Computed example of a mutant assay.
Amino acid sequence: MIRTLIVEDDPAVARMHQRALERLPGFVVVGTVDTGAAALDRLLDGGIDLVLLDIHLPDFSGVEVLHRLRRLSDEAVDVIVVSSANDGITVSQAASARIADYLVKPFSRAVFEQKLGSYRDAGRSPRERIDPAPLGQEDVNALVEAGRIPDRRLPKGLSASTARLVESAVPVEQAASASEVASTCGLSRITARRYLDHLVRTGNLQSEHRYGQRGRPEILYRRR
């Protein structure tokens, strides 16, 4: 049996995933959690073969869960991302942390069962894949095409590597200003602000305002 953990902050969606898995031979749901921190705690306890992972979690993103999992655990845990996050940066970041598949919401029950059935029928236990290779660009492109994910190219003058650097400079559990991110990345404030605003538009970050005693409010950025 493929021991599966569901990481999803919407209770209705989590129940839907659980019911679908209960109908599929070969899977057993060992738990459901609704935050990134709870997911990591459960995963580091061991005994999980597969994770169905949402990206938009209330404390930190599923991408952060993925990268922390790969850094902190030697266990061969497979991950299928199940999320409405459909921008190219998020898909690439998830793929770089070695995922088995990427399923874009919304989808039909038939698509869900086909994806999970294909994973099950691959015939290899996750424990036999001790060091799965990272997905290459062709693999990412295939995932994008299969999920009908739009090709959201970066605006002219922005680079994907710098976008990843800027996003990683935003703390996981607190907001940061453009000046703070610029200092961390070694960029000018104006350049950092361009990347931060782009990441807000793509849904990777969210912005908020901090009001001082006088002057214009300061814009802060935080992880979704």
Rank of each mutant, 00 (worst) to 15 (best):
H209M: 11
A182Q: 08
R193S: 12
P25L: 04
P155G: 11
D10C: 11
D10S: 10
A146G: 00
R98A: 14
D10Y: 07
A85Q: 15
F27K: 03
R127P: 00
A163M: 11
V111Q: 15
P150M: 12
T191L: 05
Y211K: 03
G147V: 02
A39Q: 10
G136E: 06
F60A: 12
T35I: 10
H56P: 01
P106C: 12
D139N: 13
L50E: 07
R194Q: 09
D49Q: 09
A85H: 13
V170Y: 14
L52I: 07
V181W: 06
L103H: 07
A95E: 08
R148C: 11
F60N: 14
Y102F: 15
V140Q: 11
L21A: 02
E145S: 11
R210V: 05
D9Y: 09
T191M: 03
G123C: 04
I99Y: 03
L69C: 07
D59G: 08
A182C: 08
D151Y: 02
I89W: 13
T4P: 06
R70T: 06
S207T: 08
R189P: 02
P171W: 15
L116E: 05
R210N: 00
G157L: 04
A94I: 10
V170P: 04
Y102W: 09
L196H: 08
K156D: 15
D131A: 14
I130D: 03
G88K: 10
S125T: 11
L66P: 04
T35H: 07
A175L: 03
S61G: 14
V30E: 12
P150H: 12
Q18V: 04
Q137C: 02
S177I: 06
L205F: 10
P106R: 09
L143H: 07
A110K: 12
D74R: 09
G147P: 04
G157H: 14
V30Y: 00
D49T: 14
F112C: 01
E75R: 15
I190C: 04
A95M: 05
D101N: 12
M1L: 06
E208H: 05
A37H: 14
D54K: 13
I89N: 01
V170E: 11
F112E: 01
E167L: 13
R210T: 02
Y119R: 04
V200W: 12
I6S: 05
T191C: 00
G117L: 07
P126M: 04
R68D: 10
A14Y: 03
P217W: 09
T4S: 13
G136Q: 07
L69A: 10
R109L: 12
G215A: 01
I6C: 07
C185A: 10
E8G: 05
M1T: 13
V81C: 13
A146R: 13
L5I: 09
S188I: 01
G36H: 05
V200K: 14
V65S: 05
R120Q: 12
L43V: 10
I80S: 07
V51R: 00
G215Y: 00
V63G: 06
S177Y: 04
H17M: 02
I130K: 06
V79C: 06
D197H: 05
E8T: 13
